[in-house]
Each structure stands twice: as C-alpha cells, then as structure tokens.
Design a binder for these strands. Structure first.
Length: 438
RNA sequence: GGAGGGGUUCCCGAGCGGUCAAAGGGGGCAGACUGUAAAUCUGCUGCGUAAGCUUCGGAGGUUCGAAUCCUCCCCCCUCCA
C-alpha cells in the first residue's frame, strides 16, 4: 500500500482532499470511484486526469471503480454550463459503456482474479427502477433544500442578477431536474458505499459540491464515513481550453481522433504546460521527470518534455505501433521530407500517414492531360474555397505539390503520382489535401 | 401599452446620397524568423484571370446614382407604465 495522496500531491493532481482520507487509505485496501459521462462511445482527454487518478489508485494497491453515468447523464450536471441533455436509449448506453470500458482497460486492470481489480458500474442499473416516490422518501428526506441551495453550482444559477461580475452569461434559472442532479449523484455514492464498500469518490474540482452531497448522504443514511478527493481543472498557459483542437475534442478513440493527431496534440504543448502535463499524464516517477525537466531547460528547442509526454501517453492510449506510425507521419509532414521520401512510402503507410486528411478524387484522364493547379486546389476539389483564394495562395508561395512549392502555371501530371494514385497538395505548412486518382 | 436607440462583410465597429467591396481593430490564413512554440515583422482575408457581378435585417420606393433618403414589415436593446 503506497501512499496514494502523496503520489498525487507531487504530481500536482490534488485540488482538495477531505481530512482523514490519507489515513483512511493507508489502513487497508479501499475502493474509490470516478464518474464518466456516457453520452459518446469514447472518452476524451478531458477525462484523462480522473482516469489517471484511478490508475494511480490501483497502482497504490487499491480498487478503482469507474462509474458510467447512464442515469445522471440524462439529467445534466449544472456544475458545467452544460446544455440540455438528450436521453440515451438503452442499447446506445450499453454500447457506449462497453466502448468506454475498452478504453479504460488501457489504464486499469479489470482482471477479476486480482484482489484490487478495477470494476465498471452503471448508475442506470440501480436508478432505472427507483421510483420517484421511493427516491424522495428514502433519499430526499435526508437532505435539506437549504443544504442543496448552498452549493456553488446551484447558487450561481439561482442568484439571478446578484453578481454581474461572476460569469458573463446571464442567469437563466435552473430547472428542477438539474437541481436534483446532486442528489442523484449523491445517491450513487451511497449505493456504492453500501454495495461495493466504496468509501472514496474522486473527480474534478467542479465536482466537490456533488461529491460532498454523497458523503453527507452516507453519513446520514449509511451512518458511515466517506471521503472526497478532487483534482484541479487542467488549464493551458495561453488560456485556451485544454483538450480542444480545431476539430473539437481530442478523443481517445482513434476513429474520432487519429493517433497521429493525438500525438501531435501533446507534442504541441507549450513549455510551461508540458512540465505540468508530464507529471499528470505519464507514470514516470519523480526522479525521471526531474531529470527530463533539467534536460529540457538545457536545450528547450529540442522539446524533450513534449516528445516524451507525447510518446508516453500515445503508447498508453493507443499502442507502441500507433506511436511509431504517428512519429513517422510527423517526420514526413514536418521534417525535411522530399518528394522522393513521399514516393517511397507504400500505399498502406501513405494512407496511415494521411489518415484524416481531406481527400478528393480526380480522374486519371485529367491527370494525364495535365491538371491545372488552380482547378486542383479549388473548383475540382474544394480544398480551397475559391479560385481567387487558390491564386492568392499561389502568389503567396504557399502551395506545394508533394512537398515541392509550385507556381500558378503548374500543371499536375502523371509524374506527380505517388504509388500511381495519390497526389499530396499542401497549403502552407499545416494544411494537407490528398488527391486520389480513380 | 408609451418613449427612445439599434440591426454593416467571420466577430466587434466606423460610414450616413456618388471617390464604398465599404475605415479601424480582432480573428483566420500565408510568408520571414523559429522549436511543428511564443513574440515580432510583412502580405492576404465577398465571387471573378479580367471586364464585371453579388453584399450593409427583409420587401418595396425616390434618384442618373443608396449601406446612406422615404414607406411598410421583422428582430434586438434601454427607459417609463
């Protein structure tokens, strides 16, 4: 039983801990849970901190429980500025739950023969048959509205025009449904406390209020003691939102966010952020991390931290092979790759490297006739919005065919084909487009 | 219900009869520099190779000519009841 709290502490993963939690965890094997939203069939990197909390928990010898919020997901947590939730039907819910468990298996050991095997539960299973009357009698009776109103998540929503300097958005009030959210989540904790001897709930710092409703229920109904541990919300030094890229969320599912993009997201962390991230998102120990930071400070341009961070997390979430491909893709896209390098790629590798890059099809006849570069950029493919934009880009010397800059008069011919069927168009450094000959 | 103010190109915001495809800023994109970063500098940012065409809440109208004037309609905001 290693000291879990200390481990999280030096990693900067602790925002708040309920007093006594450390002693409680040192005594014997404990169970802790984290809730995940099953609205999609994949988690995203915003979920990664709490996943790491569970992973470290298991590595410390304790038993992690991942709770899928099939029931709570239907209500909507007022702690975020979440919009209206749509109800998931049960098959979708199960599908999402299975997909999420697959992803968690990269971090957690679900092997039931282990004493501290990870476990997956879905609160829909115990909430679906809980009648409204039963709920308000057995649960609602024990918590006062006054208590619930005191939560920040609630206060912020109901004090209409009190603090105009809090959040820019106007208060729209709060539905009864959302108000109930904390009770439902609190009940989850009580349920797990009773059925799974789960005594700790973890989550982001925005969950503190919801978690304490749970510990309160456990105290009042279960006559027990339970603990809350929260982690800070991950921020980026430049103020932009962590976990978002141009394409929206950075997902763990390679079908949603390719391993290459995933790798790139981490590689592009700022110096400041990467020092923080490497502690949170890798399992490297303190000595290793200190050494890396020292090395990084010696020669920042080598970006030792970013590279190691990206390597580690990509390997865990995807695989060592996926990491290799992502790195290969990176060196082709950002290294000094030449047309020859590109042409040397076999078809499968080419497709992997440019997975997710938009494509358009052109006929072989058009290529053989010499395809006008302006048409190839705009009208024939939709890569750029208009011929005018294509011409502008060409004048800016920002267009390349197969990594070679071209001029406005250029015509794409059969000698430009890679593997006899692809042409790589590029606008600037980062915008790629693949022409596929059919 | 009464009184005012306003809706402009991705966003904010100037323009208030011709010189307006529309100032300025932001954002975006590109080029240089660099570490696939940050900062900085430069250029581009309705469509069209061009002539020209389509834009200023919507529909009409006045005028040689309208984002700018008139009429009606729609939508937002503020104040009063």
């Amino acid at each position: 039983m290693t000291n879990y709290i200390e481990e999280l502490q030096w990693r900067g993963m602790i925002h708040d801990v309920m007093p006594g939690a450390q002693e409680h965890l040192q005594e014997s094997l404990r169970s802790a849970y984290v809730g995940f939203d099953p609205t999609a069939d994949s988690l995203h990197i915003g979920n990664l901190v709490t996943i790491m909390m569970l992973a470290h928990f298991q590595r410390s010898g304790h038993k992690p429980i991942a709770l899928v919020g099939g029931a709570t997901g239907m209500i909507g947590d007022p702690s975020g500025k979440s919009a209206e939730r749509n109800l998931l039907d049960e098959p979708t819910l199960r599908h999402n739950q299975n997909a999420i468990q697959k992803q968690l298996e990269h971090f957690l050991d679900f092997d039931a023969s282990q004493k501290n095997a990870a476990e997956m539960v879905n609160n829909y299973d115990w909430m679906k048959s809980f009648s409204f009357l039963d709920f308000i009698r057995d649960v609602g009776k024990h918590i006062t509205v006054n208590y619930m109103m005191a939560k920040d998540s609630v206060k912020n929503r109901i004090t209409a025009d009190a603090g105009d300097d809090t959040s820019a958005g106007g208060s729209e009030g709060m539905s009864f449904t959302e108000f109930t959210y904390q009770l439902v989540q609190g009940y989850d904790f009580l349920h797990l406390y009773k059925e799974n001897s789960c005594t700790v709930q973890m989550g982001g710092s925005d969950q503190w209020g919801n978690i304490t409703t749970g510990t309160e229920l456990i105290r009042r109904i279960g006559n027990g003691k339970a603990y809350a541990i929260t982690c800070p919300l991950i921020t980026k030094a430049d103020g932009s939102k962590f976990g978002k890229s141009e394409g929206g969320n950075v997902w763990l599912d390679p079908a949603r966010t390719s391993a290459y993009k995933f790798y790139q997201y981490w590689l592009n962390s700022s110096d400041e952020d990467s020092e923080k991230y490497i502690r949170i998102f890798t399992f490297l120990n303190q000595a290793e991390i200190d050494a890396l930071i020292a090395e990084h400070n010696e020669a920042k341009h080598l970006r030792v931290l970013q590279k190691r961070l990206a390597d580690e997390i990509t390997t865990i979430v995807h695989s060592a092979q996926a990491l290799e491909k992502a790195k290969q893709a990176s060196s082709i896209l950002f290294g000094n790759a030449t047309a020859e390098d590109l042409k040397s790629l076999d078809e499968q590798t080419f497709l992997d490297v440019f997975d997710g890059v938009p494509q358009a099809e052109v006929s072989i006849a058009a290529i053989n006739d010499g395809l006008d570069i302006v048409a190839a950029l705009a009208t024939d493919t939709g890569f750029l919005k208009s011929n005018g934009e294509a011409r502008r880009a060409l004048k800016e010397n920002s267009v390349a065919v197969n990594k070679v800059k071209v001029v406005e008069e250029y015509k794409i011919g059969s000698t430009d084909l890679i593997n006899g069927k692809f042409v790589l168009l590029q606008r600037g450094k980062k915008n790629y487009f693949v022409l596929k000959v059919v």
